[in-house]
């Protein structure tokens, strides 16, 4: 099918884009179009105005510092995936992007667009959530920073106001002695996942686990973050460093998710996947943390 008619705006600057969003009620932002255009083609959405930000060069940025990675609204998945310095500061970003769709889709789709789209089965919202990252929003009224915990309100619903543009997203750096892992199960390679997990394990100076957290996708209306400090204590009780048993974490996570059934998988299978993926991801993140201190 074809999109219904709309009025097209192609601003060249951020101010111009915010001006159109302020003036035209019901205007939608068009970034990579890899989620929006399918919705328009299927006529699930029919906005009266589209604000195409692809010519706003000032949004095409990636800033890497020791604090973390600031991804501008026009940075495509592929460009962020290839940025070696971003992967060094926060490896979860690259690990997760490799599971987003297919390479050809990643050439156009943007990281910030994926957050704004707020699909509960998408990878990057779970990464932003588990890292406690932020989205920077701008409108003609001013700017504000929205914490990940407040950004995702429901399926395909973010905290952005209709006249707001997400100009960047901040993914905090991994603390020292931290290992990460990203795992998911999908029906076919590149599909949206049935369930997935972004895991972080931090060691203290004595190589004891001092922090363990996981962010989940596909198991709720919004990304879910579970603090696994409690099962981490059980995981290392009486064991030498590096030989942790994360099976208790699997049970712990299973009890805390409330997935739904759909045509792809029923709730009990998703819950099962959460357990399996948690145990594997925590193991892999622990191994990566030890690898880093060696």
């Amino acid at each position: 099918m074809k999109p219904s008619p709309f009025e097209y705006h192609a601003p060249r600057s951020l101010d111009e884009a915010l001006g159109v969003l302020a003036e035209e009620a019901g205007a939608k932002v068009l970034a990579g179009g890899q989620s929006l255009i399918p919705l328009l083609n299927m006529r699930l959405a029919a906005p009266a105005h589209l604000v195409d930000i692809n010519r706003v060069a000032e949004l095409d940025t990636i800033e890497v510092s020791e604090r973390g990675v600031l991804v501008g609204a026009l940075a495509r998945h592929t460009v962020v995936e290839r940025a070696a310095d971003a992967a060094r500061v926060q490896p979860l970003l690259r690990e997760a992007i490799r599971h987003v769709a297919h390479p050809v889709i990643r050439n156009r789709g943007t990281v910030v667009g994926s957050l704004a789209h707020a699909d509960p089965a998408a990878e990057l919202p779970a990464v932003l959530a588990v890292l406690g990252g932020e989205v920077e929003a701008a409108s003609a009224r001013g700017r504000r920073t929205i914490a990940a915990g407040e950004f995702f309100l429901g399926p395909l619903e973010s905290a952005l106001d209709p006249d707001e543009l997400a100009i960047a997203a901040f993914f905090p750096a991994a603390p020292p002695r931290t290992g990460t892992a990203f795992l998911e199960t999908a029906r076919r390679h590149g599909d949206y996942a049935l369930a997935g997990v972004a895991a972080l394990v931090t060691l203290d100076e004595d190589l004891r686990v001092s922090g363990a957290r996981a962010g989940y996708l596909g198991v709720g209306a919004v990304p879910l973050v579970i603090d696994l400090a409690e099962p981490a204590a059980a995981a290392q009780a009486g064991r030498p460093p590096g030989t942790l048993d994360w099976s208790a974490a699997a049970a712990f996570a299973r009890e805390r998710v409330d997935p739904e059934s759909d045509i792809h998988a029923d709730a009990s299978y998703r819950r099962h996947l959460v357990g399996v993926l948690t145990e594997r991801a925590m193991g892999a993140a622990t191994a990566a943390a030890f690898e880093g201190v060696r």
Binding site: A10, G33, Q34, I37, P38, N41, N54, V104, N107, R108
Partner: peptide, 12 residues
């Protein structure tokens, strides 16, 4: 770069 021509408007 390879891209989907069905997910892009000609104006873009």
């Amino acid at each position: 770069e390879p891209v989907r021509s069905c997910l892009m408007f000609a104006v873009t």
